[in-house]
Simulated scan of single mutants.
Amino acid sequence: MEYFLLVLLVDFSQGWILKKLFLCFLIGCMCYGEKIGDIANVVGVRDNQLIGYGLVIGLNGTGDKTSSKFTMQSIANMLESMNVKVSPEDIKSKNVAAVMITTTLPAFARQGDKLDIQIASIGDAKSIEGGTLIMTSLSAVDGNIYAVAQGNVVLGNSQNALSGIISNGATVEKEVNYDIYNKNGLILSLKQTNFQNAIKVQNILNKTFGEGIAKAIDPRTIKILVPQNLSTIEFLALVQEVNVDYSNRDKIVIDEKSGTIVAGVDIVVHPVVVSSGDLTIKVTKEFLEEKDSQKLDNETLLNPNYNLISSNGRPTTISSVVRALQKMGIKPKTMISILSAMKQSGAISAEIEVL
């Protein structure tokens, strides 16, 4: 992390307001790194998933067939709640579809707030386009109802006629209480487990707000105490803006369908020999004479006769290997297998994630 070196004369005798302004100024001078608000969450402050079962009505013969017994039973139950008693066997309508409704209840959502909802058919309907979802309760994993949904289904840009959305289709009825204002201490949870990052967050918070404010208790968790002269909300707002020299793990992301490979250009590939079918590839640091090799780029040389990938004594990177494999005409699936084999052998230390 780098800082601007500044010499300031500040009169703190005017009270804590000047101190806070000076503190905000110091935070703004941290010009490199990741904000703590981007790499860590406050434990307990989170979204909650809601789910419900309901009926979409008004379909033009594209609803569930009468063979969907749960749909017919749901229609009978709905009518009975309105003092209309009818047997499920007597219902022949194909204008109704049974659906599941899902949404996310944001942290600190209040009664009356609106939520977007997603709807998907669970029966044998042909389409739910143009239908209307009738009032449906949405509950969380604890079984309590937190929102009520209703509205007209819109397919949007989806080509799937069996799923849709309703913008602002749910209204929050019950709040998830989290008394953050009166808490003297909070817990930060890093999004990635890393001993060094936990210590870095601890040290920068203690340096910014004073010793003893933060304490890392494991590679993911940091306990923080709220200073007496700041409210919890003010303190968290400042904490989230603090920059820290954050270390990210190297990762190689591969989209198997498209063959797209995304990786850092400086991920090192150690010397290794990989055999895949009739193909044998060797990654080495040894120097290749120009007359015996084909120039691939400024760093990597590829010997077309032996599939020998070299970086002329410098560390070979994953970007060099991928370009070399592409020049050999290796297909994406085979390339994925080769990279995975390199990972298993220890030649690549970065994590590989296949989508």
Results as ranks from 00 to 15, higher is better:
I233T: 09
Y146I: 11
V141D: 14
N41T: 12
T232A: 12
G44L: 03
G313R: 00
S258C: 06
R46N: 09
G210N: 08
Y32E: 00
E129R: 08
I36D: 11
L339T: 01
G277V: 07
L325S: 01
L23V: 02
N41A: 12
T132G: 06
V226C: 08
V56H: 03
V148D: 10
T208W: 09
G156V: 01
L115D: 12
L188P: 08
I39F: 08
I213L: 04
R220H: 10
G259I: 08
K19I: 02
G346I: 00
L50R: 04
A341N: 05
Q326C: 04
A120L: 05
K94E: 05
G259E: 13
V273F: 09
N229H: 15
S319T: 06
V176T: 14
A40G: 09
S337P: 05
K94Q: 10
P227H: 15
I51H: 10
Q240G: 06
G346H: 03
V7Y: 12
L238C: 05
K251L: 13
K85N: 12
Q344T: 06
T103A: 04
L225Q: 11
G277C: 01
S127I: 15
N77Y: 11
V154H: 08
N312A: 00
S310Q: 02
G169Q: 10
S163L: 15
N248V: 14
M1D: 02
E34P: 11
T171Y: 10
G44E: 06
M82A: 14
A170F: 06
Q196C: 09
T221Y: 09
L162C: 09
G52T: 05
K257F: 15
T103R: 00
L6P: 06
I122Y: 09
P271S: 01
I166R: 02
P88L: 11
D250F: 12
S345D: 02
Y32H: 01
E80Y: 07
I336L: 15
K295A: 09
I213A: 13
T316V: 09
Q192P: 13
R220C: 02
S81Y: 07
K331F: 00
N48Q: 12
N184R: 04
L6Q: 08
T66A: 07
V268H: 01
N152Y: 09
I204M: 04
K285A: 06
N83S: 15
S320M: 04
V10L: 10
S349F: 02
G61V: 13
V43M: 03
R249G: 14
G52E: 04
F195P: 03
A120T: 11
N184V: 06
S319C: 10
L23G: 05
K65Y: 11
T260Y: 13
T104M: 07
Q240D: 00
G130Y: 10
L225P: 02
N168M: 02
W16P: 11
N160P: 10
V86Q: 14
D113L: 11
F195Y: 06
M342G: 01
T136I: 05
K35F: 07
M1C: 02
N206M: 03
Q111W: 02
G264C: 09
L279F: 05
P304N: 00
S345V: 04
F25S: 07
V265P: 03
V265E: 15
G58I: 15
G151E: 02
V321W: 01
L21E: 04
V322I: 10
K251E: 15
S337G: 09
L308C: 00
